[in-house]
Write a protein that binds this DNA or RNA. Structure first.
Lengths: 211, 211
DNA sequence: CGATAATTAGACCGACCGTCTATCTAATTC
DNA sequence: GAATTAGATAGACGGTCGGTCTAATTATCG
């Protein structure tokens, strides 16, 4: 009851580090990612995520403040995952810069195919749902696109320096154009359950850009 | 603002009105269109549609077999509306063929602006939601895109004949490319509540195509 | 006046998010 | 090992909301 004196020792179990990993938490996030990329945020129930990994409800609210917080964390992870994936492709010196972006599209296509074109892009999915989502999601989602675009723009700038792209074009605009269209392609690929839209857009983009 | 909420409505069969057939049904469809373009199918509740037009809950199933049937009818109407809108633009002889498509993009942009970029494309919205929608929607939605694409392709073919487009390009592929990207642009415009993505895509498309 | 058509009130039932309390396990000190 | 404290599991529960359906209500027609 006296003032806050730094206790020399505390009995009992010590608090865990705030960033300590947890298998259960991981499992929830992984299952959540699958559900949200397939069906979006509103259409996915917590119970559903819970039951696919056999975790009781009590645990969910132990690990996450709310469904919204859960979703926000999923967005951040997804964004970081793809940022890394882009960077990995863009750092591949065995290809020309433009070919690196093309390799990314093929890799993404393969990923979608692996899941039978049932999963879309989390950011695109939630973006479309935005009208029914908590408002804080908007900036978060827009920010993710902005980030991906910046990374892509620098790759395109290098392509330009390498003479693969008309020097008159603006790499930032091209990157914006690419992501606008690519998200459209992912949407269509998921709707039609085929890779065709991905190829149509990518082929068209690279053909047009190369002049 | 207050649409029509003066009378609390009478219960049973209404007196014979010289009215056109079922004003109520029309009102429901119009309100449904607004809701679905803003928030999608799953996130839109019947109650919500009902209350915005002051129609009692019991009435819904008098006019529509189910929410699914309601949605299907909305898709059909929306598809027909835009098909007509495309045709109208494509028939404008005062413009070159390519300029007609460009005029369509500007007109669509103006429409989105009129609603503060809160409403997206019904077909794109539901397409993204497909993972959580009744399966019959899939073909319907894909069919709408196919239809719009065909109309657009014939416009592009005329542009090609007029020498506006490189004769080596395939108008069908270009039309597919256009719609993939355009839907992506609408998605982003709605997310970011700005016209920029629409312009970025349209400007890029026409610049690249005119090459 | 009885039959039939058009419309609606309100009940039904399941799903959903989030809360709550109880219990169980893990880590540490005494 | 007993005591102590933190972390995690467990699932029932409440309140709300959503889609659907049946029964009731009112008009019109024969």
């Amino acid at each position: 009851m006296d003032a806050a004196t730094p206790q020399p020792r505390k009995r009992g179990r010590p608090p865990r580090a705030p960033d300590a990993p947890s298998d259960t938490r991981e499992a929830l996030l992984r299952a959540g990612l699958v559900a949200l990329t397939e069906k979006g945020f509103s259409a996915t129930g917590i119970d559903e995520v819970l039951s696919t990994v056999s975790v009781p409800k009590g645990s969910f609210y132990h690990y996450f403040k709310s469904k919204e917080a859960f979703g926000a964390e999923l967005i951040d992870r997804y964004a970081a995952h793809f940022a890394a994936r882009l960077d990995r492709h863009f750092a591949d010196d065995t290809l020309t810069p433009l070919a690196r972006l093309e390799a990314f599209t093929r890799s993404a296509e393969a990923s979608m195919a692996r899941h039978d074109f049932r999963r879309g892009c989390l950011v695109g999915n939630l973006g479309q749902e935005m009208g029914a989502l908590p408002e804080p999601f908007r900036q978060r989602l827009a920010g993710v696109f902005a980030d991906w675009q910046v990374r892509t723009a620098s790759c395109l700038a290098r392509a330009q320096a390498a003479g693969e792209i008309d020097p008159d074009r603006d790499p930032d605009q091209l990157a914006a154009f690419f992501w606008i269209g690519w998200e459209g392609a992912v949407l269509r690929a998921k709707l039609e359950r085929t890779a065709a839209p991905l190829r149509t857009f990518a082929d068209g983009f690279f053909a047009l850009v190369r002049g």
